[in-house]
Amino acid sequence: MSIILNTLQSSGALYRSSGEKDSFINTFPNKLIVKNGEASTLIKDIFSKTKKKKYATIPSETAKAEVPEGVMTKCTNCKKIMYTRELQKNLKVCLNCGYHLPMNSKERLASLIDENTFQELNQEMKTGNPLQFPGYEEKIIGDQQKTKLNEAVVTGTGNINGLKVVIAVMDSTFRMGSMGSVVGEKITLAIEKADELSLPFIIFTASGGARMQEGVLSLMQMAKTSIALKKFSDNGGLYITVMTHPTTGGVSASFASLGDYNFAEPGALIGFAGRRIIEQTIGEDLPEDFQTAEFLLKHGQLDAVIPRLEMKEKLHMIVEMHQSGGDLEW
């Protein structure tokens, strides 16, 4: 640091006292930086090195304990505390800052599907630890007890404002929504069901990627789901994907990206390789919004970013648009 300070002083780049670093950075006139070529490179270097890394942080135990269990919920983005019930009513979209908090599959289905119309498919399907991977079964049993689910995806048929669809919802609370044989098979069966009944297929993705403990069997689920989608598409089927936080790895590189319409929720993390891996590989800092839904929209990967509170209405409109037209009077 002393070297840098010396450079700053010798290059005539003003003063700097400890504790004033931030204001110094912010108020440093841009023009000066541009004019003074040598100093500008160095100044930039200081800032990038001292810049806080934006990796996920694990909240401390004390922070967690501030909020009484259940009654109140703290927004992970703006830290505002609000009644859990009000937050639930607002579909877990922060009442203060609009941040979309994660939803599990049950909450998601309740927010989209008309009451009493959901019929689950293949609910009982479970993984059999095909590679005899040590410790896998225990982890699965733990997640099953925690989530009351058998696997990381729930599939079924149901109505969206009266229009029947086949829907799959991935659940990131179960093994981070990772895709093993069961997830791949259930999604493929749902696609086949949609094809058979000539219904639209809608999927809400949330996944860390392929499940490590099933090795190459997980990898092949990418191909399995994709070939089923190709067949469905060639038969004229409508396929809509909605990417929710997070959609990464083998899931983003297969069915999540193959929709006739690719949508995402605001702020969702979507990408193939993880941010840290990319930063380490290329040795560069990545932009703040890198791999967010908004970033992908700008880069042509998404048709639209749809806020959760408009999701049901928009999905209904699009599904309806693909069914009408046959009974025109003209």
């Binding site: 929209l297 042509g300 048709d303």
Partner: peptide
């Protein structure tokens, strides 16, 4: 009626 704008070329940008 009901115009719904979609974006992007799925390759490079919108």
């Amino acid at each position: 009626a009901d115009f719904f704008e979609v974006h992007g070329d799925r390759t490079f940008g919108d």
